[in-house]
């Protein structure tokens, strides 16, 4: 009897130590849903006080880097980009003054490094909730 009870108590302790089933909920294109579920986390980084290449920098506990080894340029939101002399576009900020543009606000075309806009964020403290607003400008004309 004692052994059974001891076994049960050990199992219960193990169960209490194991994490409950957990999930990650993704909000793709659903800012309203994210804010409702996440209680509108404060804007933590908007790049307005930054300039130049911030690749490798840690800001508010977040380390920014490019998986491709590209630069991560902080540029004014009004920066106009163009593709091989084609149509021009503007990186419009949703708030504040600046945006982060991997490779800078140039579109040389093809698969050059400057065209690769990948971004890696490493968190000093694990994130319970996180959201990005990002702007994307896609050229209408294909490169020749």
């Amino acid at each position: 009897m004692h052994n059974k009870l001891a076994g049960l108590s050990a199992l219960t302790l193990l169960a209490s130590a194991a994490p409950a089933l957990a999930t990650v909920t993704v909000f793709d294109g659903n800012l309203a849903g994210f804010n409702a579920a996440a209680s509108s986390p404060p804007v933590t980084i908007n790049f307005d006080a930054l300039s130049g290449n911030i690749a490798g920098n840690t800001i508010s506990g977040v380390t920014f880097s490019s998986p491709d080894g590209n630069t991560l340029e902080v540029v004014p939101a009004s920066t106009t980009v163009s593709l091989l002399g084609g149509p021009s576009h503007t990186l419009s900020a949703t708030s504040g003054l600046n945006v982060l543009s991997p490779g800078g606000a140039t579109m040389p075309g093809g698969s050059t490094l400057a065209e690769r806009d990948s971004l890696q964020l490493d968190f000093a403290s694990p994130m319970t909730r996180s959201g990005w607003i990002y702007c994307l400008n896609r050229s209408i004309a294909a490169p020749s």
Partner: peptide, 15 residues
């Protein structure tokens, strides 16, 4: 067509 992505505003809550 090629695209240019700008990352604008990051919100988060850390553990």
């Amino acid at each position: 067509p090629d695209a240019n992505v700008g990352y604008d505003t990051l919100r988060f809550v850390a553990q």
